[in-house]
Design a protein around this nucleic acid. Structure first.
Lengths: 158, 158
DNA sequence: TATTGTTATACTCTATAACTATA
DNA sequence: TATAGTTATAGAGTATAACAATA
């Protein structure tokens, strides 16, 4: 380990670190502008796709389920999120955005200009190139991390 | 606002989000493997370049100076960092890595394979292309966010 | 008077463990 | 017995405000 990569690779690493830093700063800023913490914004954004069991939210956020209780509590206290029973399993509570939660999430998303605005500096051809390079960097298994992978019930109950 | 970008742009945005997520996960993991929090690892890494006044650390981490007191306290309790007086201004305390801190930081850095390993999937030509695209995305002012901008004293004392 | 670092406080996020109600 | 969600607890990061030492 500690093998030193070539200068080009190191520069790309640095650039990626800059992207990461900038992305996070803008995300926190946008969340803060709506009186949300980063974690609250992530949960709100996640639930805006579809209602989801508390446990699944924890899995998506990669944190312990007990933490989701508090985060959803705070969102629920502001009427951005609500807990609904799951008809098929009375142990489960489905966290779901309210109408106001959806509006807040839309405003939040609209203010997340980071990725859009700098991308406008690139031509369409360049964006396609960037897409291909990022895809290959991330591997074939990561292209829809936020949209698709949790559509299945995964329970196969009947 | 809330203007919907073209599908290509949205996909690139998604890919960047994946990069950001993965980078952070790996960073936290690497820090955790050395019994460090993310913030502690960032401070350690920052100080490994050179000693720095507490206040400057706060500026670099974009948080309030009072927080740095606690983070450096915890690093100092483990002999990874020490506080030194600044001969030129007795108000200032310079935070500096110890020998053990430097060794820890080196091991930490060596374990941060994320950016190196996936980059190996690209040819040198592709990495150069990626570098150019990221540079243009970030703008001309961001190419050395972690290495260079704090070399100046900024005080012009003498 | 302004600046550096610290303390005190409050809030949020986090993991762990124990609890409950369901399955 | 196992699972979903909660509670309680402790540690860490964060911002704010007030403070001592120094400039």
């Amino acid at each position: 380990m500690s093998q030193h990569a070539d200068p080009l690779t190191l520069e790309v690493v640095d650039l990626i670190a800059s992207v990461v830093t900038r992305y996070h700063e803008e995300y926190e800023e946008a969340a803060c502008a709506h009186n949300l913490t980063g974690a609250q914004a992530r949960v709100l954004s996640l639930l805006s796709h579809r209602p989801m069991p508390m446990r699944k939210v924890a899995v998506r956020l990669k944190c312990e389920p007990s933490n989701i209780t508090g985060i959803v509590d705070r969102l629920e206290a502001r009427d951005l999120v609500e807990r609904r029973p799951d008809p098929s399993d009375r142990r489960v509570k489905l966290a779901a955005v309210t109408e106001e939660g959806r509006r807040t999430e839309e405003r939040l998303r609209a203010s997340l200009d980071f990725a859009r605005e700098p991308l406008a500096r690139l031509t369409e051809q360049e964006r396609a190139t960037l897409r291909d390079l990022l895809r290959r960097m991330l591997g074939e298994n990561a292209e829809n991390a936020d949209e698709d992978e949790d559509c299945r019930d995964g329970d196969a109950k009947d």
